[in-house]
Amino acid sequence: MQHRNEKWAIIIFLLPATVLYFLFVIYPSIEALRMSFYNWRGLGTKEWIGFDHYKYMFVDSSFINAFLVTGKYILFLMPIVLLVSIIIALSIAKLIRTRWFNLYRAITFFPYILPAVAIAMLWATIFNPVSGMLNGILEAVGLEEWTREWLGRESTAFGSVVFVTAWQMVGFYSVLILSSILNIPEELLEAADIDGASRFQKNIYVILPMLKDILQVVLIFTLINTLKVFEMPQLMTGGGPNGSTEPISLYMYEQAFSNFNFGYASAIGVVFLILTLIASVLTLRITRGDRS
């Protein structure tokens, strides 16, 4: 009796969440796979075309471009975010037990809680070549030759988008790493002091090795979040100039909701998933291999 009662209870506990989850998360994902074999614009008839969408990706220069741009985002963002977060975390950690500690920590963390839309628009106004703050400041301090159309030229647009994305991401990871540093047993650091280690040596040889686990987490998080970069390019550059800031995510969105190629967009989504999985596994492998 008790047993059956318990069984029902388990079902009731699981049911609502599971239904929602399977309906809105799992089913559309499977449906994406199915739709990727059809040519369908959302209106009219669906046409089975087999692997045509996947084949088309190899000749679709815009897709290839978006693919490479996504790779470029990863290549730049992962090291930048990692490095800056570590430096910030180490700097703040040194100030523990001072009144500055909480202040700096809060300020660094702050961008993380802002809406990505607001961040994108905020920086778009700063980068504006005629009414923006950046060119204004450069002119005011006599660096006129440095002023440019930051988001309007291929040479600077990508860097600007990377900068803003890092601006948004860094706070969270700094705090993550910081808390790991604070968890390092004091004795270890004291021992290093007694051995006469310089601050730099202490950072490299004592603290960093202790942070391996958390740095691995940071790397994977950054990777997955970089693959998902969307708001910044969409709102700051629209993916331009000439596609130089357009990641796969944005290209897929445009295929689905500007060109209404739902089938093709789904195929891109499937490729996107495979990429995410490969990237995650690779990162795990590399960081693991490092350890042994």
Binding site: F127, N128, P129, V130, G152, R153
Partner: peptide, 10 residues
């Protein structure tokens, strides 16, 4: 100057 980075109303 700067015209390649602005929108049409600007």
């Amino acid at each position: 100057e700067g015209t390649f980075g602005i929108n049409h109303t600007e």
